[in-house]
Design a protein around this nucleic acid. Sequence first.
DNA 1: GATTTTCTTGTAGTTTTATTTCATTTCTAG
DNA 2: CTAGAAATGAAATAAAACTACAAGAAAATC
Lengths: 283, 283
Amino acid sequence: MNTLELIKKNLDTFSKSERKVAEAILASPQTAIHSSIANLAKIAEVSEPTVNRFCRRLDTKGFPDFKLHLAQSLANGTPYVNRNVNEDDGPEAYTSKIFESTMACLNAAKNGLDINLINRAVDVLTQANKISFFGLGASSSVAHDALNKFFRFNIPVSCFDDVVMQRMSCINCTEGDVIVLISHTGRTKPLVEVAQLARENDAFVIALTAADSPLAEQSNLVLSLGVPEDTDIYMPMSSRIAQLVLIDVLTTGFTLRRGAKFRDNLKRVKAGIKDSRFEKTED
Amino acid sequence: MNTLELIKKNLDTFSKSERKVAEAILASPQTAIHSSIANLAKIAEVSEPTVNRFCRRLDTKGFPDFKLHLAQSLANGTPYVNRNVNEDDGPEAYTSKIFESTMACLNAAKNGLDINLINRAVDVLTQANKISFFGLGASSSVAHDALNKFFRFNIPVSCFDDVVMQRMSCINCTEGDVIVLISHTGRTKPLVEVAQLARENDAFVIALTAADSPLAEQSNLVLSLGVPEDTDIYMPMSSRIAQLVLIDVLTTGFTLRRGAKFRDNLKRVKAGIKDSRFEKTED
DNA sequence: GATTTTCTTGTAGTTTTATTTCATTTCTAG
DNA sequence: CTAGAAATGAAATAAAACTACAAGAAAATC
């Protein structure tokens, strides 16, 4: 738990003098971590033992230990607090807010993931005869991205971003086929129907979507990113980034699982691209 | 600069005893920040002043100050150090490595951005008659994503991921058109030619690409993400994520610049989608 | 190869910083 | 208004960090 947040939350549980300490710290945390206990006591206009007691109340061993905790939470740039863009932000402000909230979001997503399910998904993908990635709207770019990555493994893989093609593809499914459906909310009707159709035709359905959504219910395996987002004005930015990173994770798992033989194959594909470039490397 | 990294990098500039200290810290940074100078000296089998000298050599005021620095860099989950996936990583390991290195990469990207150029890009986009997003290969999904976002602003916007269409589109360019080219390396021949073609037809060319690349030279405005990446085996994962976040930033800047009127428009587009859903929200 | 110089390291002493103890003050409840 | 409890700070104690200096090792010079 972020120390600054903790202090804010417990402001009313402190005694009068202890609150003075809290406020002094909140006013300038940077000063706090670079002060001695005597100095901070003077700033807060209390005695040294009071500062010490304040530290202990926050479950630290004492003042130096408290400074350590505080320093650590400052290092994170408080990414969880108050990072929404508002109307009068300048370029500097909205740029760092977006980057920081994206990072915070990835962090949250990481902590909320079920590693066993990921492992399971990699299993399924490794054994698939054919893999298809489906997404609609904003999620279609995630599906495309997935296609791009799996394409290099030299296995049958496809990607559709319109419902008609998705349905047609599902009808031709057989056992051993894996369909990966991508939807932030899991409430896009056509996609839920596609999931149903796929399962009726014996395909294995993996969903990258919200837990407890209609789409999740229709799927064999759900990888959910617990990333709430205000989708009312701005677009589902961060959550989509998290989906992409999840695709990265699956790709990596896939690569590792299939071992060295396949990694050679990857290199060969890359080598084949080099001709169309000024130099080496990748787009 | 990350303290642990700094220690590693300077390992050979230390004297024999100081290196003992460095190694003791690297072996268990967590122990280090919770030890007194006497304790750490004992662990490293040196004297206390040696530890103190070691701290000063790293440009800190002394041992307590050093602990603060170290604590801060530990708080970031050591994302900069040694985060490459290797063959025998389990799901847990590669998942967190990928998430963490992506976050680190975003952080690096954020710090390397030129805010003025972003502001300039937003300016140009806001005044464009027509916006086109071009990408090839892995970058095409970024272009699609951009299309998806700008599409909602109710301005002429298009996206092509094959060279032929891109060239055709460029030939029809007129002054006031803006072309956004996306390429991780900036060395994809066809895309560089497209940039040339677009400029010959009076379009304004914005490139999301590496600085000092052929593509950068052919563009009117370059937004570069200084994100080096080992593209030899794994794909350009993190850098592409950074590009996407940059698109988010541009979109946000665009939204803010055009003011409240346009934000209403966004809401209307959203409302129009709702019918095709089980509930509200967005994919 | 010896000798001087420089750099490195540790011991012991000093100073700074943090913590504990305890007396005083300030609330709170009857 | 007073007994008891809680909060606070002064002073003393303990701990930690730092400094000065001297002994020893390594490097350079003759």
